[in-house]
């Protein structure tokens, strides 16, 4: 427990308190987008439904940025700098490290929900029950799993430059075609069916349904669970292959 607490303290500082990248891209930017598209760049009254739906979209977007940019960069950085090697050679091993990163990743997502939810309540008078907020937090955390798993896969890339390019190529097209930035109806008709297969589309739909009291489509839940299952198989299989091909932890 002492080891986990120490690891959590260590990671809390570098992942949140001293991580400008997280503070800007995962918190300030989605918050700015939310205010921009619900308060600034609007004419007339904005429907409450849009305020809620766009809050859900920005929560998913923040989690996606964190899962595909923030966490993979940190995992790769730790591997490059030798922290992971060092921990692997201790009696504790790397389990505590991964547990700590996983827990902080959830806290980071929860922080985005608090900030975006707070903005929605203060500036757009959004009113949800405690049960709805709790459900949103739960779904957002579960819904982060598919993108987190993609992030773990991306973190296996050896070069920082390549990792950044791949993260960009996945995150932004996925965010746009799954309707996180603007409504899907604005996309070309041939692109919409592809967008509706993205994990972020299913999570956004699910959160939106809870926030707006809409009927939850079974396909949405199946989509999220399906992505988690598929990506878990790929990540577990990929990790095993990498460990088989790896050359140990020491390079002399």
């Amino acid at each position: 427990m002492n080891t986990l607490m120490a690891q959590l303290k260590f990671d809390g500082r570098r992942l949140i308190l001293r991580n400008f990248s997280f503070q800007f891209f995962s918190i300030l930017m989605p918050a700015g987008f939310y205010l921009l598209f619900t308060k600034v760049m609007v004419s007339g009254a904005v429907p409450m439904r849009f305020n809620l739906q766009y809050m859900a979209s920005m929560i998913v977007y923040s989690g996606t940025i964190n899962a595909l940019f923030g966490i993979p960069q940190i995992l790769m950085h730790d591997r490059e700098q030798g922290l992971l090697q060092w921990l692997q050679l201790t009696p504790t091993g790397v389990k505590t490290y991964y547990l700590s990163i996983g827990l902080w990743s959830m806290v980071m997502n929860a922080l985005a929900i608090v900030v975006l939810g707070g903005l929605a309540v203060v500036f757009n008078q959004v009113s949800l029950t405690v049960g709805q907020w709790a459900t949103i937090v739960g779904i957002a955390l579960i819904g982060q799993l598919p993108t987190m798993l993609i992030g773990v896969l991306v973190s296996f890339i050896n070069r920082a430059e390549t990792l950044s390019v791949v993260s960009n190529l996945i995150t932004f097209p996925m965010a746009i075609i799954s309707g996180l930035w603007w409504p899907m109806a604005m996309l070309p008709s041939w692109l919409q069916p592809i967008g509706k297969l993205m994990p972020t589309y299913f999570v956004n739909n699910w959160l939106g349904a809870v926030a707006t009291h809409a009927t939850l489509n079974a396909t949405t839940v199946i989509g999220v669970v399906g992505w988690i299952g598929l990506l878990t198989i790929i990540v577990v299989g990929g990790t095993r292959q990498l460990l088989k091909r790896g050359d140990g932890v020491v390079k002399a």
Binding site: F10, L17, N19, Q81, L83, V249
Partner: peptide, 19 residues
Amino acid sequence: LQGDMAIRGVTVTELLTMA
């Protein structure tokens, strides 16, 4: 080992305390 241990966002004391 050969890694630099230039971990972002933590001080020398914080790294050693965790370790």
